[in-house]
């Protein structure tokens, strides 16, 4: 499964009518997320949640920002894939303009990206937006 667009994800998730299918879809997205090499999972790239950890590596490619992300939890990897659909290889302006909360709301997943969840996802979004602001 290659990484779908945000529109495709919204359509796909709307199509499922039970939570198991939705979660299985997110798990499958997580499995399809390109793996980050273990040597890239450095302390500086680590965002520690109290439940799971997330690593973020970024590089600018001209106008665009390219990211590698990974978590030790598969569902967080799936949620990261949803985030990547929004941010991967986009310009700083596109990243800053994207309504990530609205997107997660439309996916009915906002509780997974809320600041109260210790999964590191909110911190990754903040980091990506900070990188875009500096770009």
């Amino acid at each position: 499964m290659s990484l779908p667009t945000t529109e495709e994800i919204i359509d796909d998730l709307a199509f499922f009518d039970d939570w198991e299918q939705r979660y299985q879809y997110i798990i499958d997205l997580g499995k399809a997320l390109p793996a980050m090499s273990e040597t890239d999972k450095t302390e500086e790239r680590l965002v520690r949640g109290c439940q799971s950890s997330v690593w973020l590596k970024s590089q600018s490619q001209g106008e665009q920002l390219h990211f590698e992300v990974a978590s030790d939890a598969i569902i967080v990897n799936g949620l990261l894939a949803l985030v990547m659909a929004a941010y991967q290889d986009k310009s700083a302006a596109q990243i800053l303009a994207f309504d990530i909360d609205g997107y997660f709301h439309s996916l009915d997943l906002e509780r997974h990206i809320s600041p109260t969840r210790g999964n590191g996802l909110r911190a990754i979004v903040a980091k990506i937006r900070a990188l875009a602001e500096q770009h």
Partner: peptide
């Protein structure tokens, strides 16, 4: 073979509240 956070996610969706993580 599963991360505790993943187990917690799926239990939560079934109405079962547990805690996962390092427990401070």
């Amino acid at each position: 073979g599963s991360h505790p956070a993943d187990v917690g996610f799926i239990l939560d969706r079934q109405g079962i509240a547990i805690r996962t993580g390092d427990h401070c």
